[in-house]
Structure formats: C-alpha cells, structure tokens
Amino acid sequence: MTKNTITLELNQIHKGFKNTSGELKVLADISLTVQAGEIIALIGPSGCGKTTLLNIISGIAAPDRGTLRQSPSLRLAYVFQEPRLLPWKTVEGNIRFVQDNFLAAQEGKEVREKLLQKTGLLAYKDSYPAQLSGGMKQRLELVRALAIKPQLLLMDEPFKSLDLALKFDLQRLLLTEHEQEGFALLFTTHDPDEAVMLADRVVVLSDKPTQIHQEMVIGLTREKRTKTNPHIQENVERIIRVLLERHI
C-alpha cells in the first residue's frame, strides 16, 4: 500500500502556550513522517496536544521550533474535533464552499452527490446545519473533507459519539474512499481498537510535555483484521498498557 513518496515530514516540532502561570509546554520534540497513502492513528492522553499537532500541520498554528515539510501544492482536508460548518449555508453550500477551490463544477457535483448519497445526506442537501443532528453534522464534515479529493486528510476524533452502526458505516466508507483515492490519513482517537483496526501505524503520545512514546506498525492487511485476531489483540493490549502506565 505505502508508496515511497513522502506526503508530510515533521521535524522536532515544539509548541507551548503562555498561560497565567508562565509557559505550558505541550509538544516537545515531535518528529513524524507520513508516506503517501499511509494511515496513521494518533492516540494519547486528553490534553497532550493531538489537536495542537493537527493545527500545526494544517497551518492554523505555527510551531515554536522545528520544521514542517510538505509540498506547497499539497491538497489538505481537515475534519475538526467540533464541526465547523457555515450556519448560513446549506449542506450542499457548505461542501461547495470548499470544493469550488479545487474541483471543476461538473466533477465537483459528481463527487459531492456520490458522497452525500453514501452517507445518507442527499435528502438533506438543501437543509441548513441548524436542522441537522450532531451525527449528521459530523458526517457532513467528513463529506466536505473527502469532497475536495485530498492528498492528506487530517481527522480529529472523527468517530466520537456516533452510534455503533453509523460508526462502522463511516469507517467502511472512509476505507473504501482511501482504497480508491489513496490519500494519506492522519487521525486522532481515544479508542485503541479503532486505532489498530484502521491504521497502518499507531503513534502513541506521552503526557505533556508530549513526545512520541511508542510507534507500532500494524502488519496485517485490513481485510484480515478482526477483533479476535491474536495480532490485533496483542497490539490493542500493548496500547492500553502504554496509556495506563503513568496512572499506576
């Protein structure tokens, strides 16, 4: 699956925030390379800086130190931790708002309607965000991101608070799209099962000041992964052990 072209390279990224009691060190020396087409899961304690890292990659925030290398023409999409939809645009309008920057009208329409169809949102394409449920907004965020045909997709806890069936549907959709389009995917999660079932590589982060605690390569092809597979179970248990270490 992984071709040997690099989509993104993070080199010794540091990031802190000023607060009332001085400086809060968040990211301390994060280096990470994302290959084209690779799926990476970021897992780590709440507040360790996962969102901060995605914000740095997407250009919303700047690192204090370290370098970030990516092609200037890299087409990046970002599914935010909380939906960021324009309340005054319809479902379709929200997608077109970003899609028109990248795709021609005709292609855009085809891609958009296919994705809306697959996520069950087609009937709602003229609704406004205020008329959607929380889960529908999350789906719309995902559709909007996929609709630009990204090369790098960032997702911040994309499957949280979804019902089980919907979660599996969306994961399946994401994997099918990934298979077809071959984008690199970097997502954060708090769920070790999810990380191991979806990712090629799981990056476990420590608590603040945050470093990469451990990296695990999941060797199995995705078709072979089941919750009962011993290799999968072993990796899940390892992640859980690492995450709980500090709390013993």
């Binding site: 997407s58 250009g59 919303i60 990046l76 999409a77 970002y78 708002f97 970003v98 920057n101």
Partner: peptide
Amino acid sequence: LRLVEMAEVYRCS
C-alpha cells in the same frame, strides 16, 4: 474565528 480558520485551511481566498 474558527470558521475563518476552516476557510483558510481549505484555501479560500
């Protein structure tokens, strides 16, 4: 401003 950030991430002019 979070919406402005979103628009910038998606390269809106």
